[in-house]
Write a protein that binds this DNA or RNA. Sequence first.
RNA 1: GGUCCCUUCGUCUAGUGGCCUAGGACGCUGCCCUUUCACGGCGGAAACACGGGUUCGAGUCCCGUAGGGAUCACCA
Length: 466
Amino acid sequence: MPKVITRFAPSPTGFLHIGGARTALYNWLFAKRHGGDFLLRIEDTDRARSTEAAISAISSGMEWLGLNWSGDAVSQFERSSRHREVAESLLEKGAAYKCYATAEETAAVRAKAREDGTAFRGDMWRDKTPDAETAARPYAIRLKMPREGSTTIDDLVQGTVTVENTELDDMILLRSDGTPTYMLAVVVDDHDMDVTHVIRGDDHLNNAFRQYQVLSAMGWDIPAYAHIPLIHGPDGKKLSKRHGALGVDAYAEMGFLPEAMRNYLLRLGWSHGDDEIIPTEQAIEWFNLENIGRGPARFDFDKLDNLNAHYLRKMNSEEILPLVKNELEKSVGQALSDIEQKRILRAMPTVAERAKRLPDIVEGASLFCNIRPLSLTEKAANTLSGQEAMIGGVANELAAVTNWTAEMIKAAIMSFAEARDLKLGKVMQPIRAAVTGGAPSGDLVDLLEILGQEEVLGRLSDQAAA
RNA sequence: GGUCCCUUCGUCUAGUGGCCUAGGACGCUGCCCUUUCACGGCGGAAACACGGGUUCGAGUCCCGUAGGGAUCACCA
């Protein structure tokens, strides 16, 4: 088997959406799996809709996802003279012809076909010779589709799919203004770039038959095709802005990890038995086209959250901190002091354990900054009401602790509780409420130790005074 | 409407004729652990779209019906 070459070929008319990201991931994974190359080509032949902003959004999205491509991204637009060359040669071979139909004429034929319930063939000028006047008009170049037989694609995902050639239209290769269409450009570019496997959304399945005919008219090899189902929104409808049709940058902003995203996208429509947690290294080893499902999958935030939480728990404190530092400082309102940073690093494992997304970490970690006075949740306020005197007492007891360690803190609280004949929980609960304001947190004694005596006493006295 | 594709718990899926009284995961939920919240552990509810075949035997094969999706541009 020759070296595997795959490619991702988005049109730069918007951000890199989730479906495109998955397509890119599958192409990348497949190339990696077979030691091949993964290429990026920007399909920017539609000059009116293509933007620089979209191009950079796509590359930064792919970089964030860790999908690196070989060489420079290819601009399809810049290759238009080569496309034109191929169209001309098809014309010379008699495999294509000039079409002088106007937009109105074409629209009329199309409407008629639709009405008759037949396929639009676009063959108004097939096998016709223009008179002198018409010949002077601008013309488009159409492919002369075979009218006999059928075309079969052995799709690696969809299986063997056959379509009658009479269903295929004489599609336009070169527009009347001389610019190549997508249908021509993809075929030429994939051929010139030596692409061996075309892995793309199944919205292109119908195009594959038409592209096949261009390939065979040129006598070129047919690449292997794998048309993967699209991703739908939670309601089963096509993804829209309301759902997950956000750019990958939006997911980055929501606080998802690239590794979690890759794992989620991989499992959405592909499986390896009962395996759910599949780190990228493992995915490269396992990925194949055969196990891609044939039905469209729905996007599910809950599962993404779950995966994200999993990968978050596996990270080191030192790895997480830089990811949240900026947001943390923004939320606290000032740069992190060394002391705060140390507290956060110590508390990180327990903070990460109850977080799903990065913002949860910001919230949990901010508890370890100097943020007095704390705002209380309703529940915390209830726990505290009527306990002001006790909190004051506890504060006094803790103020007397000379060696601020978990053991000493715990001993102080226990002796306080015993002296008043109170159950430990009766004392612990209000302390927690006063010190955390009701935010989720781990072991209370550890929390007090990490926070430091001064900050703890401060927070307690805030509530004792209230 | 034409053409093509698809159909297992709410969701992602395992399943390639007997191992399926259908398995896993997310979500939901009961209990345990516990000073809170989590994590974790042990349970629970929850699906083969429908109707016909083929077969000793069908979630698995065939046909039909219904539903869903894609596409039908001088967009990509």
